[in-house]
């Protein structure tokens, strides 16, 4: 119990509960199954990116290029869908986007590992390269008008309920895809040698190397996995809005990083978990959904989100500082 109180995640959960109560008190339609399913569907995009970011942060790195990677993969599948849409299917779309994402992610890994360029610099550079080149090639054009089957797939529901007015709603296939990714990623991190090696690498890369971990392989995997999530995320984005625009994702990378860090991952590496990450992503999602439901003017969104990030990260940072100080004092006595 005492250990639970020290955990950062406990505070995030508390904030979420308080927030949910306040929002429901102001607008009861927040706490309905219908809104919950909607929320889950729209959160899937950030949630998918956040999985990849979690892996990178645990390994002790950071990736600023995933939005640009997702832009490239999203645009590629959009072009393919418009040209050969009739001869393609959903599996192929995921395969192309995911595969391309992995390749671009691994390119980051090569620079980070072989030339020892800090990950933040490598990925700022590749973000500029991927995004710049894509915008030149695409001339900034928006793509839409995808085949019917692509639109239909996005409205598949695993089960369907009907609201009082008769409008159908239910658990979207997009949410299911995110859940599957969450379970696989949780399993990798928690129960495989690979996952535990990523923690070891993030905890202390020098010791991990001497202990015989294959650092190059791990780096390749982590940034490749981030690329895979960026690729899958770009498909989810295309499914959600049925439009691919070159400028819709780049610039939002810090939002995802903030959500993952809110969920307890450290920028120093070595810590973080899937359940924590889900809490962090939920907090941001519930906050923006709640602000809409509470009829807060949209101009205020960023002020509130910025405040919540500062306060919740601040509280846990301040507590950690206090605890380490107490420990130093008691030990020196």
């Amino acid at each position: 119990m005492k250990k639970l109180l020290y955990r950062h995640e406990t505070y995030v959960l508390l904030v979420i509960i308080v927030l949910a109560i306040v929002i429901t008190a102001i607008n009861p339609s927040f706490f309905t199954v219908e809104n919950l399913f909607d929320l889950l569907k729209s959160t899937s995009l950030m949630g998918t990116f956040a999985i990849g970011m979690l892996f990178v942060l645990i390994s002790g790195g950071i990736d600023m290029s995933f939005t640009a990677v997702a832009t490239v993969t999203g645009y590629t599948i959009a072009v393919l869908l418009l040209k050969h849409g009739d001869s393609m299917n959903m599996a192929l779309v995921f395969l192309v986007a995911g595969g391309l994402g992995i390749l671009l992610g691994m390119l980051n890994a090569v620079f980070i590992y072989f030339f020892k360029i800090p990950s933040i610099i490598t990925t700022i550079a590749t973000q500029n390269i991927f995004y710049g080149l894509l915008t030149v090639v695409s001339e900034g054009k928006w793509l839409y008008g995808f085949p019917e089957w692509f639109d239909e797939f996005s409205s598949i529901r695993v089960f369907t309920l009907y609201s009082e007015t008769g409008a159908p709603y239910g658990l979207s296939i997009i949410t299911v895809i995110w859940f599957v990714l969450l379970v696989i990623s949780w399993f990798i991190l928690k129960h495989t040698v690979l996952g535990r090696s990523i923690y070891a690498m993030g905890g202390n890369i020098g010791s991990a190397q001497r202990a015989g971990f294959n650092i190059f392989g791990l780096t390749l995997f982590v940034y490749g996995y981030m690329g895979l999530m960026a690729g899958i995320g770009s498909v989810i984005q295309a499914l959600l809005v049925q439009t691919v625009a070159p400028n819709s994702l780049v610039g939002k990378e810090m939002d995802v990083i903030a959500a993952v860090v809110l969920g307890g991952a450290s920028l120093m590496g070595g810590t973080g978990s899937i359940p924590g990450m889900i809490l962090g992503v939920s907090l941001i999602a519930i906050l923006s959904n709640g602000l809409t439901l509470m009829r807060v003017p949209s101009q205020w969104y960023e002020v509130v989100i910025g405040l919540v990030i500062i306060i919740s990260v601040g509280v846990s940072a301040y507590r950690r500082k206090k605890i380490t100080r107490k420990r130093v004092i008691t030990e020196s006595n």
Binding site: L267, I305, G306, L307, I310, V313
Partner: peptide, 26 residues
């Protein structure tokens, strides 16, 4: 935020960046 509260610079300034941007919009 960085020196007294102890938030890492990247997060502290990300938070203030979002908040200050919001104030400008308001």
């Amino acid at each position: 935020l960085i020196a007294v509260v102890g938030i890492s610079p990247i997060l502290a300034t990300l938070g203030t960046s979002i908040m200050i941007g919001g104030i400008s919009v308001v």
